[in-house]
Design a protein around this nucleic acid. Structure first.
Lengths: 231, 231
DNA sequence: GTCTAAATCGAGCGAACGCTCGAAAATAGG
DNA sequence: CCTATTTTCGAGCGTTCGCTCGATTTAGAC
């Protein structure tokens, strides 16, 4: 369904360490990963409560149990910490969505369903990371902002491609609105942006996937009756 | 269609003045409204570029041309300025959406279409205000956060009510997913949250409304064929 | 033109910010 | 157990923050 082994905080921190080896002063990987885990978990916790900008490094030091100066063995500026998290999120999204299982690869309808389900499950497994990325991407340096916009655009591309190939295949309505691919994204984002609301209403992951799949596929399958194709 | 006269920055500032008369030290309404306009326009401009928290009052003083101390004749704290803007936004939403024209009031399908179109046009007319409200509502004090959540919940209610009455009326599919009302919101928000993207792609307001209306109404009208109702 | 009340100003306050650095503690090989 | 290296620490640096307040300018009635 979705390999959640590589999505544990530990695995993600190992990946972050690999990506930022030169800016992380700590040598021994065991030390580094363990502390990175603690630091990033704390950073996500505080940021998701009051925002990254409002989180001071003293807040972070207290919550993580790592001293002020100790933090700077793991990043050289607060912005680098931001970049570590955002970078990891867009890397994972790319990695997961670009690799559909063989049984859906040739079938646009099932591929579309798979994209939706996998995206929702991925964001569920990495909830604090995605909340963070969504909320913080807006108000930050041009470079980081671009990273987020590009990552999102790439995600939309996956949907656009599968919908287009479905139209060419003949299994999707050729009149499908070209905006559908763009409109899938906010539907998927709502799951983690407003997670508290859905939790309160006891909406399960499966129910949410089902609702989005029905909404989107029915738009792609046309008016519901057998299409006037087959020229 | 949508009365945009009461949505000019001037009219909105007049409303803000009325709501915060006791915290605004300036007596003469003309003076107050004119400066409020300047201050809030500047605040929206800076905040939408780099975030409300990152906007210093010195930034605001420079951009608006009002001195440091002068600003404090219009609000008693930076948080109050935030509250003024958020409060005005949710007030306007409430005001506009709660007042459907008589010709759609009894007709769920047209009422639903009207809600979608009016919401998109409203957010288009007050773009900087809605961008601000969406981005900033997340990372701020409990009270302000609640304000935003409640306002959003109320908006969703309008959709839930019209869909339910449509189901009871027999003009909507009784199998319509109970999540549809919740899913309309992110679709409407995308218009102003990702406004830059749609501008770049030359998507017009009308085209966007059309796409969302088609997506949602087709979900409410059931499988497309004549429903198996009429017991 | 004069006077009074309203409106505006900006230097300055204490607090909190991101970040540094020399000292202290922990780790591991011989 | 000693020593060399790595990791951790937290007081302190310069800067900027939200905010205040006495001085100054402006507006309008007579």
């Amino acid at each position: 369904m979705l390999d959640t082994e590589s999505l544990t905080t530990d695995a993600l921190c190992r990946s972050i360490l690999k990506r930022h080896r030169e800016t992380i002063a700590v040598q021994k990987p065991d030390f580094a990963v363990r502390k990175l885990n603690v630091i990033i978990t704390a950073a996500l916790k505080i940021s998701n409560r009051k925002g990254f900008h409002a989180m001071s490094l003293r807040d972070l030091a207290e919550e993580s149990g790592v001293s002020m100066g100790g933090l700077y063995a793991y990043f050289d500026s607060k912005t680098t910490l931001l970049r570590m998290i955002l970078g990891e999120v867009s890397s994972v999204v790319e990695q997961v969505l670009s690799d559909p299982p063989p049984e859906v690869a040739g079938d646009p309808l099932n591929h579309l369903k798979w994209l939706i389900a996998t995206h929702v499950r991925l964001t569920e497994a990495m909830l604090p990371w995605f909340s963070f990325a969504f909320i913080e991407a807006k108000n930050f340096p041009p470079l980081e902002r671009r990273m987020a916009v590009d990552s999102e655009e790439r995600t939309e591309q996956y949907f656009a491609e599968v919908i287009n190939s479905g139209i060419k295949n003949g299994c999707f309505d050729p009149d499908t609105s070209p905006l559908i691919a763009a409109l899938v994204k906010p539907l998927l984002q709502d799951w983690y942006v407003k997670r508290a609301k859905y939790r309160r209403r006891k909406v399960t992951v499966e129910a949410y996937i089902e609702a989005v799949v029905r909404l989107i596929t029915s738009a792609c399958l046309g008016s519901g009756v057998v299409p006037h194709r087959v020229v």
